[in-house]
Amino acid sequence: MNQQLIIFFKALLGSCKDLLPIVLVIAFFQFAVLQQPMPNLGDIFIGLILVVLGLTFFIYGLEMGLFPIGESMAKAFARKGSIVWLLTFAFCLGFGTTVAEPSLIAVAAEAATVAASGGIIEATDISQNEYANGLRYTVAFAVGLAIVIGVLRIIRGWPIQYLILGGYVLVVIMTAFAPTWIIGIAYDSGGVTTSTITVPLVTALGVGLASSIKGRNPMIDGFGLIAFASLTPMIFVMAYGMVLS
């Protein structure tokens, strides 16, 4: 029990260190640059304590739950030897976690407003909703496909750089043809898809797969799934924009 407590306090201290830079930055700008007093000190103090506790619990649970489940499933799939099921799982994981992602929903709604104000779609709720949902499903499909390609790469041992660089070339070519209003949103959509729970799960899945397949190196083959998940949405969102116009 005592030892558990020591570990917990060490983790708590670590979280405090992680948070220190933000506190320093905000304090510096508030006092030195904007030269204003700190508003609602009490609220901020409580908030900071919650953030520190939350980060500590999250990292604790990460090592206990998310990492082990990701790796054990990867190993079970590798033992089972059914590539079709593994790829189905990969697609569901990518699609399922992205379609409900709150930051994606927010960005899609914002993008619909942009499109409506730019006269690309009608400025009615129905057509804006339709556009936002279309965008969401496009991105979710792109992420599902990304995890499938990424898992296939781990199984086959393809070098990652050719796939990613090929993707970049595709992004550049499509940028030349895609309508201007979609480009900013498309580039951003790569970044918003990977949530705090998906990332550890997908990372554990990749590393687990690479370490249970003979001849794969977990460092070289295990990482890279998230890279695919941030690349394909850009391509698909630009394609979505091209289809619409």
Binding site: I26, I44, G47, G65, T196
Partner: peptide, 23 residues
């Protein structure tokens, strides 16, 4: 694993609430 998931959920909720309150 179950407890791990529970910790992750509680941790994330505390984290988000704290961010909304303070930062």
């Amino acid at each position: 694993v179950g407890f791990g998931f529970l910790y992750v959920l509680i941790g994330l909720a505390l984290f988000l609430l704290g961010l909304e309150k303070a930062l």
